Amino acid sequence: MVRYNTPLTHPTHQRIGFPQQCWLAFFTTVLVALVCFGLGTIGSAIAAPEPTQLSDRALAQQAQRHQSQGDFNQAEADWNGLLNRYPDNPALWSNRGNIRVSLGEFEKAIADYDHAIALAPQEPDPYLNRGAAYEAQGQWHQAIADYNQVLELDPNDAAAYNNRGNAQMGLENWLAAIADYQAAIDHKPDFAIARSNLALALFEQGDVAQSLTQLRRLTRKYPVFADSRAALTAVLWSQGQSGEAESNWVAVQGLDPRYQDMQWVAQIRRWPPKMVTALEQFLAME
Rank of each mutant, 00 (worst) to 15 (best):
G254S: 13
K274V: 00
R216C: 05
Q241H: 13
Q263F: 02
V265E: 00
N5T: 03
S228R: 06
L92N: 06
E107Y: 09
I268W: 00
A251C: 06
G70S: 03
N129E: 05
I42D: 08
K221V: 13
I144A: 05
Q241G: 08
S228F: 09
L236Q: 14
N80A: 13
A251Q: 12
G170C: 04
Y147G: 03
L171W: 01
V224D: 15
A45R: 09
Q260M: 09
R269D: 01
I185M: 01
V35M: 01
H13M: 02
G170V: 02
E280V: 00
S44N: 12
Q260I: 02
Q239P: 07
Y222R: 14
T28R: 04
S94V: 11
P11T: 02
C36S: 13
Q214W: 10
D88C: 00
A120N: 13
P126A: 04
A33G: 06
L279M: 02
N98M: 09
D227N: 08
E107A: 14
L59Q: 15
F225T: 03
Q214L: 07
N166S: 12
A77C: 09
R217I: 11
Q253M: 14
I268A: 00
V252W: 13
A133L: 07
A47I: 14
R269C: 00
N80D: 10
W264R: 06
A160T: 12
R217D: 15
V30F: 03
P19Q: 10
H66R: 13
G97L: 14
A109C: 09
P189Q: 02
A234C: 01
A167C: 01
D207I: 09
T28F: 02
F27Q: 06
G81S: 11
E76R: 14
W271E: 01
I178Q: 09
D256N: 13
N162E: 05
Q142L: 15
R65M: 11
A176W: 01
K274M: 01
I117N: 11
Q21P: 02
A145G: 05
L283K: 06
Q239L: 08
P90A: 12
L200G: 06
A158H: 04
S55V: 04
Y127L: 10
L255G: 05
A184N: 03
L218N: 14
P223Y: 12
R100F: 15
L31G: 06
D154P: 00
E204C: 05
D157G: 00
R85H: 13
F26T: 10
I99Y: 11
P257K: 10
G40P: 04
V235M: 05
Q61P: 02
P189S: 06
T9I: 07
Q168F: 15
A278N: 03
Q64T: 11
T233M: 15
A75N: 09
T29H: 03
N197P: 05
W79L: 08
Y86G: 13
E105W: 08
D256P: 00
S68D: 07
Q205A: 08
N84G: 14
V250K: 12
L200N: 14
Q241C: 05
H187W: 03
P189E: 02
T277Q: 15
P273L: 00
N197I: 01
R164F: 07
Q210C: 01
Q122D: 15
L34I: 06
A226K: 07
